[in-house]
Design a protein around this nucleic acid. Structure first.
Ligand SMILES: [Mn+2]
Ligand SMILES: [Mn+2]
Ligand SMILES: [Mn+2]
Ligand SMILES: [Mn+2]
Lengths: 220, 220
DNA sequence: TTATAAAGTTAGATTGATCTAACAAATTTT
DNA sequence: AAAATTTGTTAGATCAATCTAACTTTATAA
């Protein structure tokens, strides 16, 4: 009843990720998110409930307990510190680091991650603009909005991405869309919500699917 | 039949470690080294034999195949590169890195270790003086000898340690025994082979148990 | 060279993580 | 409200990695 397995850690992380919207998570959501079958989730929920990491009763939605949320935040903290370290200290591109961090987040060594933290100067954001949870498990998102919710004429700064897959980030690289670039929304196609933006004098056309994954901050 | 599990990797590494002396390894040795029971070893040997990583027949000693030796060297390479990175690039002490490297050696990401290698300038020795296997799996030990095999009057340089446990290395730290220090053997107690050495004008008394774990190079 | 001890194997159980098939509950549609 | 669909659970199987108990082979000692 002491340390969590890699598998358990992945369930906790999934629960935390799925909680951002609804706080309560269904067996089905979890099964889909982890690409496993529902009965597997059911039995793991019983185990995690016994460890007081989740609240679980048959046929009712699942909630992380405080303890569960903290453990999950700890994993995410390790993941994001790692990504930051890989980019800032080792010279990887932001599109290369997620998969490595998925593995390193399970390393058991507070000293290792404390050292990363220190060498990085105690960062609060990861290379994708996501907040790095603090040691108490607090996760503070800035008040960003989705590019897909902006209006024509809005001037914004690209501040975070909601998808860290290599494919998506390579796409952004190919258009020189990095965190911090300033964009102006020129127009939105009513039919499919495709957005045309200006970056300096360059223009780009971005599908709604892409814009939903881009978080921006209004500039005055 | 593609990728090896963490458990399999640990068996291969153990086999390689035990092969330094005898090339052939017994079920018993392996069981002791891994702190598991013999039947567990037997069944794993069948699995590794099926994967052509070891040569195994009932009641006969076990040998790594060429493929097995290469895989094992790959893990050791990752282990030692990691230790070097932790010490040289992250500021850990040589007594802190073995346990972290035991975990990181199982990370699946050639790019990650290639980057370490590059940032370190392609080192050939780890922080404990052990050779870092090259990418082809070749491991080249310098011609060191054990301090316990030296004679009174010998002048030597401490070049490697055969035990990377935190306790042992903390003991060496407490006596300022780092790799590269020059020692002179003053005398050897015939009864228990305890050795008295001089380091500059300082004198230390080292038990045979300690001296067997210290590899030195004669200086002229 | 027989007896004893050590080393090794086989058989069967356990635990964790997963699956499929069958059934049950809850939700949505009609 | 009944039917259909979706969601969730139970039961039982599988696979990897481990164990213990019982047995066999090999090595060592008397
Ligand atoms: Mn990530
Ligand atoms: Mn990230
Ligand atoms: Mn080591
Ligand atoms: Mn080492």
């Amino acid at each position: 009843m002491r340390v969590n397995s890699l598998t358990e850690e992945n369930y906790l992380k999934a629960l935390l990720a799925l909680s951002v919207t609804s706080d309560e998570v269904s067996v089905n959501d979890l099964a889909k998110h982890l690409a496993i079958k529902m009965p597997t989730v059911t039995s793991m929920m019983k185990k995690l409930a016994a460890k007081r990491l989740v609240q679980y009763e048959s046929y009712k939605p699942i909630k992380l307990t405080k303890k569960g949320r903290q453990e999950a935040a700890g994993i995410v903290r390790k993941h994001r510190l790692t990504e930051m370290f890989l980019v800032d200290k080792m010279g990887f591109g932001w599109e290369q680091v997620h998969d490595i961090a998925e593995q390193i987040e399970h390393i058991k060594s507070p000293a290792f991650f404390d050292k990363m933290d220190e060498l990085l100067g105690f960062p609060t954001l990861d290379p994708h603009g996501s907040p790095i949870p603090d040691k108490t498990g607090k996760i503070e998102w800035k008040h960003y909005e989705k590019l897909s919710d902006c209006k024509p004429g809005d001037k914004v700064t690209l501040s975070a991405v909601l998808n860290s897959s290599s494919d998506f980030l390579k796409f952004l690289n190919s258009r020189d869309l990095k965190l911090g670039v300033n964009l102006k929304i020129d127009s939105i196609e009513p039919f499919d919500k495709t957005i045309t933006i200006s970056i300096g004098k360059r223009k780009e056309v971005l599908s709604n699917l892409v814009c939903e994954k881009l978080l921006v901050e209004k500039v005055t």
